[in-house]
Design a protein around this nucleic acid. Structure first.
Lengths: 120, 120
DNA sequence: CTCATTACTTACATTTTGTATAGTACCTAT
DNA sequence: ATAGGTACTATACAAAATGTAAGTAATGAG
């Protein structure tokens, strides 16, 4: 996470790939360790920061923040701050975020099949 | 790539997540930078090492080797060595590898939508 | 005034992934 | 005998992702 150097070969390789392969592009966007899990919780409705934290065992606050920021930047979730004390911040999927449902469904199905295969 | 430490928190987080979330599991398996691109080329039929290399601009031989090894370990591709000189090695998707087609299709579709959205 | 609550920041360490560059073994054709 | 093609392997290093531990601001309750 954090930042990525726009000058590195690494970076330009990713850009080149993303340019011509929408699947590489997509996997780069939703490819973080926690991204999909966060989204799949949010598919059931909006959640607060603290609620998400409880749902995701072992995630640190830093990681959760970073992932949510990235998701927000990519317009996958939308963030609502309620001006209260203590603060209340809610996260909700945008339309394109909700559109991940079918991707996630396919991934889950494939993942289950694969896991079963590997256990033989 | 190379090896991953089985003692790191990082590692155990991944294991824990993979255990309960098939989508995290799947994204961990097919999540490398080149994995999906390789698979989507192989969806059209078997290819040799050198052919794959040509298809993937900028990939290094090391990376290609590592990714193919990982794919092989996960039973997504199968490797056939022809005992000739110069050597000829062919890579082909297994059934579970071919089953990635629908995952890739969904990802591509979503990726296209997302990219369009972000360009507005 | 002090404490608790919530949603973060910040600074830094570690782990994982990717790149660059140079080799190797094998046989075949020149 | 040497050069060339194929599919690698080795080593060193760079960059990115993830993790740990500690702090911050705001304010209402006691």
């Amino acid at each position: 996470m954090s930042k990525i150097k726009r000058s590195s070969t690494n970076f330009s390789n990713k850009v080149a790939l993303s340019d011509e392969c929408p699947e590489a592009y997509a996997s780069h966007i939703i490819g973080g360790q926690w991204t999909l899990v966060i989204c799949s919780w949010l598919l059931n409705g909006k959640l607060r920061f603290g609620e998400l934290k409880k749902k995701l065992p072992n995630i640190t606050e830093r990681m959760l923040t970073l992932q949510l920021r990235k998701l927000e930047k990519n317009k996958i979730v939308c963030r609502t701050v309620h001006a209260e004390v203590p603060p209340r911040v809610e996260y909700e999927l945008t339309p394109i975020g909700l559109a991940l449902r079918s991707v996630i469904k396919e991934l889950e199905y494939w993942g289950d099949c694969h896991k079963q295969l590997m256990n033989e």
